[in-house]
Design a protein around this nucleic acid. Structure first.
Lengths: 308, 308
DNA sequence: GAAATAGTGTCTTTTAGACATTATCCG
DNA sequence: CGGATAATGTCTAAAAGACACTATTTC
C-alpha cells in the first residue's frame, strides 16, 4: 500500500497519548426467563460514580488486549459466574449500539458499546470485581412495558445537528403504545426519567433499546430458543414469546406456525416426561433448527395503525 | 444518589490519563443515487497509515466536545461540502455499529463507531482536511453485489470466545446469495479479502454491513425517499429500490403496493412536467408521508430457502 | 401512428388468524 | 370421570405476485 520503511518509522514515533483521551466501556443488557417472567441482569455499583445505584453490568475495555465482543463476553461471564465450560456456550451475544454523549459520565468522556445477551435460565448471579451485588431483576420492575418513543425510532443520543434526521436502529415493526410512565422524556432529554429511572448513567435508555431490539429480534430470528434449554416443547417456546412481548398468543395457531417455518425447530422424536401439571398429553420435544432467519417471520399481534 | 461532597472530591481527583488509552473515531457509509446507480462516498487518505488508500470518510471524536452523532454529522458535512443550510437537512443518518479489534489500526487500539447515511443526489464531494480526495464511487465497483456471510448474520468482529454465539445485527430478511468474489474470508478472517478489498482498515467490512443494513431498512421504513428530492414519482421511488436491491421490480405491483401502505407517500396533487423520455403519460408527484415504519413491509423478492 | 410508460383490474397462491375438534394425560 | 392441555382441521380475510388491459404521452 505504501512504503514499509516509512510506515514503520511513523508507527514507532506515534504517541498514543498525544490527544485528549476518551474511555471505552462495554455494558451488557443480559436477558433471561425466570418463572415465566423476563429478567435483566443488574449490578449494584460498588464504586463511584453512582455508588450504590443499579446499573447494567459492564466495564472498561482493556486497551490493546481485547476486542469489543471479547470484552462484553468477559464482563458477562464475570457477573453470571459462568465460563465457557459451564453454560456460557449457550448464550447469544450481539452488539446493540454505542452511546457517547460527552456528559453521560461525570468523570470524563466515556463511550459505551452496549451488548444484548439472551441466556437460558441461569443460577443466581454473583457480583463481579467492582460490583457490590449482582441480581436478576424482573424487567417489569425496571422498565414498565411499552415506550412510545423508542418504539418507532431510536432516539438520537442528543440534540441533533440542525436538520439531520434521527435514525432508527434495526427495528422492524411497531410496538403497541403502552401505558409506560416515561412519556415525559423525549429523545432530547438528558436522562429518561420514566423507563429505567434509577439506573446509573444512561443505562435506562440502553435497557429500553435492548428490550425493543429483543422484542423485534425474536420476530424474524429463532433466537427465542436461546432462552430455553437444549430441548423444549412448543408450549415452552410460546411462553418465551409471551414473556418477551407481554402478550398472550393463540396456542393452536402458534403451534402450527412454528412448525411451518422451515428450519425453526426440528423434532427430537421424544416427548416430555409427563404432561402439564393439570393434565393433558405429553408434549413433543424439539431443538433449535438450522435457520438463522425465519421465513416467514412471526409477526407480533396488535400492531396498531397509530404506530407509524 | 450518594453524598455530593464526597462525589465532588472524587471527581476532582480523578485522572483521565491514568489508564492506557483507546482512541474513538466515527466512520460514515454515505450512500446516494447517481444516474440510477448506488454510490458510496469514499476518501483517499492523505495521511498515514494506509496513505493513498481509499477509505470511508471519518475521523476522531473530539473528546468532551461532541457526541458520536454530532461527530458523524460533522465528518459527513466536511466531505460533502454541505452544511445545515444547504441540503444536509435532508440526509438520514443512523448508527450502524462499532468495531474494536485491537489490531484494526496499526497505530494503537482504535474503536470506530460506524454510521450509515442516505443522501439525495449531491454535488461533487470535496476532500476534507486530512483527505487527499473525496469521491462518490459506484458501489458495484467497490463491493460486488451479494455477500453470503453478512447476509444471514453479522459476523462477530473476531474469533469468538469459545462457545459464544455470534449475533446478527438488525437484519430482517435473507439476501439472495450473490456471485460476489469474497467467499474466502469468513467471519474470523483478519481482513475481508473479497468485498471492499483495497479499502483501508476494516472499512470493507463496514461498507458491506452498511449495504446490508440499507437493503434491509428500505423494506420496512420509508427511508428510500431519503434518496430522492422533496417530490418524486412512484417510478423514481421504484428506481431507488431497484438500485439498492439490485433487482428489477414489477412496476404495476410496486405502484399499487406503495399507495396501499398507509403513510408511505402522500400525493401532491401535481404531475411531473413531462412524461418519460420515450413517451408515456405524465406521472403524478408524491412526497414522503408521515409513517416511520411500513405496515405491511415491502418484501424483497427472490428470497431463497437456502438463506436460512 | 408506433412505441413506451403510468396506472388500474383481475385472478391465484400464500399466510395470518379465529375458531372448532380430537386425542391424551392428570388428579 | 372431568378438566386441562397438545395437536390438528376448517374457514375467512388479507396480502403478494403474475398477468392483462387502458389511457396518455413522446418521437
Amino acid at each position: 500500500m505504501t512504503d514499509r520503511q516509512g510506515e514503520d518509522a511513523f508507527l514507532a514515533a506515534y504517541d498514543p497519548r498525544a490527544f485528549e483521551p476518551i474511555a471505552v466501556t462495554v455494558d451488557v443488557v443480559a436477558l433471561t426467563l425466570r418463572q415465566g417472567a423476563l429478567h435483566v441482569l443488574l449490578v449494584r455499583r460498588g464504586g463511584r460514580p453512582y455508588e450504590g445505584a443499579w446499573a447494567l453490568p459492564g466495564g472498561f475495555v482493556q486497551a490493546g488486549r481485547e476486542s469489543l465482543d471479547e470484552a462484553a463476553a468477559r464482563e458477562l461471564a464475570e457477573e453470571t459466574g459462568l465460563d465457557a465450560a459451564r453454560g456460557l456456550g449457550r448464550v447469544h451475544l450481539e452488539q446493540l449500539g454505542s452511546y457517547g454523549r460527552p456528559d453521560r459520565d461525570p468523570r470524563m468522556h466515556v463511550v459505551s458499546v452496549a451488548y444484548l445477551a439472551f441466556a437460558p435460565d441461569l443460577p443466581e448471579a454473583r457480583a463481579g470485581s467492582d460490583a457490590a451485588a449482582a441480581e436478576w431483576v424482573p424487567v417489569e420492575a425496571v422498565a414498565p412495558q411499552g415506550n412510545p418513543d423508542a418504539a418507532t425510532a431510536r432516539p438520537m443520543e442528543q440534540d441533533r445537528p440542525a436538520g439531520i434526521h434521527g435514525g432508527g436502529s434495526g427495528r422492524r415493526s411497531g410496538e403497541a403504545p403502552g401505558d409506560g410512565a416515561g412519556q415525559g422524556a423525549g429523545p432530547d432529554a438528558g436522562f429518561d426519567a420514566g423507563r429505567g429511572a434509577g439506573l446509573a448513567f444512561d443505562h435506562g435508555t440502553i435497557l429500553a433499546e435492548g428490550l425493543d431490539r429483543a422484542r423485534a429480534k425474536i420476530e424474524y430470528t429463532p433466537l427465542a430458543a436461546a432462552f430455553l434449554g437444549e430441548e423444549f416443547t412448543i408450549t415452552e417456546l410460546r411462553s418465551v414469546y409471551e414473556a418477551v412481548w407481554g402478550r398472550t398468543l393463540h396456542a393452536g395457531n402458534f403451534h402450527r406456525k412454528v412448525l411451518s417455518v422451515p428450519g425453526f425447530v426440528e423434532s427430537t422424536g421424544t416427548t416430555a416426561g409427563r404432561g402439564g401439571s393439570k393434565g393433558g398429553p405429553r408434549a413433543r420435544l424439539y431443538r433449535a433448527g438450522d435457520a438463522r432467519l425465519l421465513h416467514p417471520a412471526l409477526l407480533r399481534p396488535d400492531r396498531e395503525d397509530s404506530v407509524r
